[in-house]
């Protein structure tokens, strides 16, 4: 099992507020790692440090190192475009662009200068197949993406990401806008994805973390309380606070 991302002594501040304190953890290649914890504990912040989406927030300060394949991504000369090509992200609410289904899927390729129509079509078919949307959408490629159902939109966002062939997929509560059946489909998809991708998922849903992830990290008020194999975290947590949280005593 190879280490894909290694986080070392990570501190994140929003202005004066300390959002993450001395985080050390490792994300394993081709496994699903879940980050759990109550609202405001910093799990989304941690996720967003992995592709430097936090840079967009005003007044944010990041200290420490994050290594992707052994390379620190918090150097001054880090190429953010390349980084985000390798580390893609799916958001909480499906956010397809107000373009057609096709234009959404090829967006990431076009901004990198791929314009060969035949190639684009091939990739569209492949990435839709990967999220099991091809049969549903093959006749709707010219339709506005926003006319799809929420669950289709979320899978479309995932397909849009797969089209640029990332190595790591970050998911920020990807199912919170979806109903249980749609959630089931996305979870099934995650199992498929981990064959080829390293997946990090932030979730509020304890059952979801237990169902899909191989490793889990529990955060509380900016501290990483406990990290380990999901089976162990959920059956025999070492820390009392983890125990309290996963049994639903708070959070």
């Amino acid at each position: 099992m190879a280490d894909k991302i290694v986080v070392k002594n990570l501190f994140v501040y929003y202005g004066k507020f300390q959002a993450l304190k001395e985080i050390n953890l490792t994300f394993t290649d081709r496994k699903i790692t879940a980050l759990i914890g109550p609202s405001g504990c910093g799990k989304s912040t941690l996720l967003r440090t992995l592709n430097r989406m936090n840079d967009l927030i005003k007044g944010v300060k990041v200290e420490g190192e994050v290594y992707l394949d052994g390379e620190n991504i918090y150097l001054n000369n880090t190429n953010l475009v390349e980084l985000r090509k390798k580390v893609g992200m799916v958001f909480q609410r499906p956010n397809p662009f107000p373009l057609t289904v096709f234009d959404n899927l090829v967006y990431g390729l076009r901004v990198r200068g791929t314009n060969n129509n035949r190639l684009l079509k091939e990739i569209v078919e492949k990435s839709l197949n990967n999220v099991w949307l091809w049969d549903e959408l093959k006749d709707k490629l010219k339709k506005p993406a926003l006319s799809l159902s929420l669950e289709q939109q979320q899978r479309l966002c995932l397909a849009r990401l797969l089209a640029v062939e990332p190595e790591v997929i970050l998911m920020d509560e990807p199912c919170s806008a979806l109903d249980p059946i749609a959630t089931g489909k996305i979870e099934e998809l995650m199992f498929e994805l981990k064959k080829e991708y390293t997946v990090v998922i932030v979730t509020h849903n304890m059952q979801q973390a237990a169902r899909v992830s191989d490793f889990s990290g529990f955060l509380l008020l900016g501290d990483l309380i406990e990290f380990g194999e999901t089976g162990k975290i959920f059956t025999a947590p070492k820390d009392e606070r983890t125990q309290d949280y996963i049994t639903g005593r708070f959070g």
């Binding site: 989406m53 985000r84 992200m89 956010n95 662009f97 373009l99 967006y107 901004v111 990198r112």
Partner: peptide, 19 residues
Amino acid sequence: YREGSLALGANVWQTAWGV
């Protein structure tokens, strides 16, 4: 929309123009 575009590796210009 802007976040989605930037997360796909687009720069600010591409995001403004494309999305």
